[in-house]
């Protein structure tokens, strides 16, 4: 009985593995069959902005310009040009607008570090505000106690007067 159970479990496991393998194999095959230079084409094209569609990369975009730009990248990669040279080719023609991620230079530094600086200033302001609130609340508690004492003294005095 135990042996039959083990056999059943094994058959189930084999079925699961076979299903997974048949599902992912077309994807794997696609990557295996592609030209080795295509990986570099993909890396470069994913970093370049499709010039006519605002926020899509050349690799993702379906526009005619992006398709032709991809073709230019492919030609250059096949011609043996280096990644930096190809990126520079587009930069020379379209400026840094062509990069999806702004370069870390010049005014772009403000884009990269501005939010961090803003966050630090905001945190400092919040800390100082909290400190002030805490100070104020301690102060009011103290003055409240003093007020209570004064009030009690007055009440006592009034009561004394009534008794007399």
């Amino acid at each position: 009985m135990a042996q039959i159970n083990i056999m059943k479990r094994l058959a189930q496991a084999i079925a699961v593995v076979a299903t997974i393998l048949t599902t992912i194999s077309p994807l794997a095959a696609k990557n295996l069959n592609e030209d080795p230079s295509e990986a570099l084409v993909r890396t470069i094209a994913k970093d370049l902005r499709c010039a006519v569609c605002q926020n899509q990369s050349v690799y993702e975009s379906n526009s005619d310009l992006a398709k032709d730009m991809l073709e230019v990248i492919r030609d250059k990669v096949k011609a043996g040009e280096k990644e930096a040279t190809i990126r520079d080719y587009f930069f020379q023609r379209y400026g840094d607008y062509i990069y999806l991620e702004p370069t870390k230079s010049g005014m772009n530094m403000l884009l990269w570090f501005g939010p961090i600086i803003g966050l630090i200033i905001g945190a400092l302001a919040l800390i100082s505000a909290f400190k002030k609130w805490k100070k104020n609340s301690v102060k009011t508690e103290k003055s409240k106690k003093e007020d209570d004492k004064k009030m009690q003294a007055r009440i006592d005095e009034e009561l004394k007067n009534i008794e007399v």
Partner: peptide
């Protein structure tokens, strides 16, 4: 037709 010149000249549209 393949806009090779256009891309070489940084043309958007």
């Amino acid at each position: 037709p393949k806009q090779k010149i256009a891309i070489d000249w940084g043309v958007y549209g």
